[in-house]
Amino acid sequence: MEMKRKERIDRGLKVRTEGIYAISSFKEIAYLIGPRLLLIGGVMLLPLIFEVAPYWKRVVNYMCVYAILAIAFDFLANYVGLVCLGGALFVGVGGYLTAIFNTYLSLPFYLSIPFATVSGACICTVIILPCLPLRGVYFAIVTLMYPILFSRIIEAFNIFGGTNGISGIDSFPNQYLEQYLIIIVMLVVLFGMRRFVNEDVGLVLRGIKDNDQSVRASGINVTHMKCMAVFIASLMGCFAGAYISHLYMFAGLSLFALDFSIIPIAAVVMGGGGTLVGAVIGCFILVPLSEVLRDFGSFRIVIYSVTLTGFIVFKSEGIMVYLQRKYHQFERWAKI
C-alpha cells in the first residue's frame, strides 16, 4: 500500500528573511502589504458598510474599544509577563476623569479625552505600583480587585454622582468623527505596539517576561521598566474609557464592569496570545457574536462558553498564529 504523509514547506519568497528583499519585486511587496492592507481597509470601510444597519455602527465602536483593551492586555501579559486584569480599572478611571473634566471643568471633548487619558494613566500606574513585585496569578487577583474597590468607594462616599453616575457629558459632534476616531486610534495603537515590542526598549520588556533576575543582573531597574509598561497599557485603557463616556454621554459604575477585564482575555485566547493582531481579531469575532446572541437571553453565556472551550481545546494557539503559519507555509501530501 502506498503511504503518504503531510509535508509542510516554506513559501519560496525572499521576503521571509526580513531584509532589503521586501522591495525587490511587486510580488514580495504584495506578500508583505496584503494582509496589513486587508485589515486596515476592512476596518476603515466598516462604518460605510453599516450605513444600511445603523444599530451595528455602535457595535463597531465597541469592537474597537474592546480591541484596544485586548491589545493592552496582550502587551502586558505576553510581552511583559504581567497578567493584568485591570481593564475595568483603566476604563473606569479614564471614563470618570473625562466626565469630571467635561462637566465640572467644562472642557471640550478634544481636550478632556487627552487629559483624562494621560492623568488617568498616571493614576492607574501609581495605584498598581505597589503590587508590581507580585507575579502571575497574584498580580492578576490584585488588579482584578481594584475596579471593585473603586466602585465601592464611589458608592459608599456618594461622590461623582454616586450610584446615579455623571450624566450630561458632551457627545461627539458627528457620527463619522465618533467612529473614525476610535478606528484610527485602534489602528495606530495596533501598529505602534507591534513596532514598539521589537524596538530595543520592547526587547528589554520581553526580557523581563522571560526572566527578570537576568534583567536586574544586567543593570536595569526592573520596577522602572514595569512601571513604564503599565503606563503604556493604561494609556490605551484610559483612552478607551474616556471614549466610552463621551459615546454614552454618561459615566457611571457600569464603567467598572468586569466585562472590560474579561472579554479582552477571551479575545486574546481566541485570537492567539503574543501576536497583538490576534487580540484585535478575537474582539472582532467575540463582540459581534455576543451581540447576535443577545436574543437568546441568558442562554447566550452557554454558547459563549462552548465557543471559548472549543477554541482552547482544538486551537489553543489561537486564530492568528494558525493563520500566520498557513500564510508563510503550505502543506502537501508526499509519498514516503
Partner: peptide, 18 residues
Amino acid sequence: RPYYSLPAFKNLIIPLWS
C-alpha cells in the same frame, strides 16, 4: 538564564540598553 524567546544576539540588546 537566557531570554528563551529572543534570538541569541537579541539577548545582548538588554544589557546593551542598560
